[in-house]
Each structure stands twice: as structure tokens, then as C-alpha cells.
């Protein structure tokens, strides 16, 4: 699934990373606990979360993710946006809740970590 498709499906706003909207992603995860993301996620490309602090950006970076979707109308801080720009991450924001946002993406074919993301 292209990141721009995620944006459309979730009626999301692009905060940063417009130039990577054409990138393909093959899996995603949703969590507000970063330690769980670090523990259970392999080869995920998209993180959906309602958590807003710089550690969300660092966690995504550590996991080699390329896109973060902030749910429930959460807005990242300028510091987070700066960190995301440095790391080349795409940040999206949607007013949908975590469960709903994950459900929409899943039912449109973006599964959990069953499918391995293409090599970088």
C-alpha cells in the first residue's frame, strides 16, 4: 500500500514527508506503548499511535519504520517534526481513533507483520 493511500483512507493530514507519499509499505502496527513496539514488531513500516513525545520518533527510527500516523487528532510538537525531518520519516495526523484507523488499514489489505517489507 502506498503511503498516500493510507493518507486517503484515514483522511489524514501530511505534517512532514510529502516527498515520500509514493513509497510502498507492507505492514503496520498500532500501539501507545513504545516498549511493545520495540518488542513485538518486526519489519513494520507504519506506526499508528496516540502517543505524542519525541520517543515516538526515536522508536520508529530504531525500528526502521518510515511512517507514523498520529490518531485522535494528536499533533506532534515542533521538536518531533524536526526529528522526523532529520530521519526522513513521514508524519500523518488523523482524527480517527487508534482502533478504527488500524481497522480501516487492515481491512484494506495492510496487515500486521505477516508480510515482510521489501528490502531497503
Amino acid at each position: 500500500m502506498k503511503i498516500c493511500t493510507i493518507q486517503e483512507l484515514l483522511s489524514a493530514r501530511v505534517i512532514v514527508g510529502e516527498e515520500r507519499l509514493g513509497d510502498h509499505v507492507y505492514s503496520a502496527c498500532g500501539s501507545d506503548m513504545m516498549s511493545d513496539v520495540l518488542a513485538y514488531v518486526k519489519d513494520q513500516a507504519v506506526l499508528l499511535t496516540g502517543l505524542v513525545n519525541p520517543q515516538v520518533i526515536r522508536t520508529a527510527e530504531m525500528m526502521d519504520m518510515i511512517c507514523i500516523v498520529f490518531v485522535r487528532s494528536k499533533e506532534p510538537t515542533p521538536e518531533m517534526i524536526r526529528l522526523a525531518e532529520e530521519s526522513g520519516l513521514v508524519l500523518l495526523a488523523t482524527d480517527k481513533r487508534l482502533y478504527e484507523a488500524c481497522g480501516i488499514l487492515y481491512s484494506n489489505g495492510l496487515v500486521g507483520n505477516k508480510v515482510k517489507r521489501a528490502a531497503l
Binding site: M33, S35, D36, A39, N53
Partner: peptide, 24 residues
């Protein structure tokens, strides 16, 4: 042990303190 944590609640609200650090 996964899930054991002595982190304060304010750390949990920041997305950590789930008792996964050392196991990870």
C-alpha cells in the same frame, strides 16, 4: 521478567515502563 517494572506512572504515560526494557 517481561512485564515487571518499577518505573513510575509518569514514565508509563510516555510510552515506556511496561517492563519490557531488559527482556527486549
Amino acid at each position: 521478567q517481561a512485564g515487571f517494572s518499577t518505573a513510575p506512572d509518569n514514565i508509563r504515560s510516555l510510552g515506556f515502563g511496561a517492563g519490557m526494557g531488559l527482556p527486549n
